[in-house]
């Protein structure tokens, strides 16, 4: 395991889960991924990502009611845990801090092409 590091895709997944609460489950997350992040990923990738995050303790899940179009199967709803929230915040803070310390000159001297 990579310890507490979040991959870019994992972070995206967690933010999706946070946004979709309380209806964050596989299909909804993938659709949101496609619409908002314009990323078309396979269902398998979404599920594996979610399960890994659950194993790391950043997400928790429970089974919800079944619906007709799911062939009478229940869906698994994900939500963020406290440590999940913490790691997201850490990530954000780190980024904010790095952004704030970038010298002005960096942006002025960007070479195009």
């Amino acid at each position: 395991m990579k310890g507490t590091n979040l991959g870019e895709f994992e972070e995206l997944l967690m933010l999706m889960v946070a946004n979709l609460y309380p209806d964050a489950y596989g299909v909804a997350i993938r659709e949101a991924m496609k619409l908002q992040a314009n990323r078309s990923v396979a269902m398998g990738a979404v599920h594996v990502g979610l399960s890994r995050l659950e194993e790391k303790g950043y997400l928790t899940s429970s089974l919800a009611e079944a619906t007709h179009e799911r062939g009478g199967r229940r869906k698994r709803l994900f939500s963020i845990t406290t440590s999940g929230k913490n790691v997201l915040e850490e990530n954000m803070e780190l980024r904010n801090q790095l952004w704030s310390t970038v010298p002005e000159l960096t942006w002025k001297n960007i070479q195009f092409g």
């Binding site: 489950y25 596989g26 299909v27 269902m43 599920h47 399960s51 089974l63 079944a66 619906t67 179009e69 799911r70 062939g71 199967r73 229940r74 869906k75 698994r76």
Partner: peptide, 13 residues
């Protein structure tokens, strides 16, 4: 323990 939600999601898709 995963199969139910996976198949459910696939059906829905």
């Amino acid at each position: 323990d995963r199969v139910e939600e996976i198949l459910g999601d696939l059906d829905e898709y």
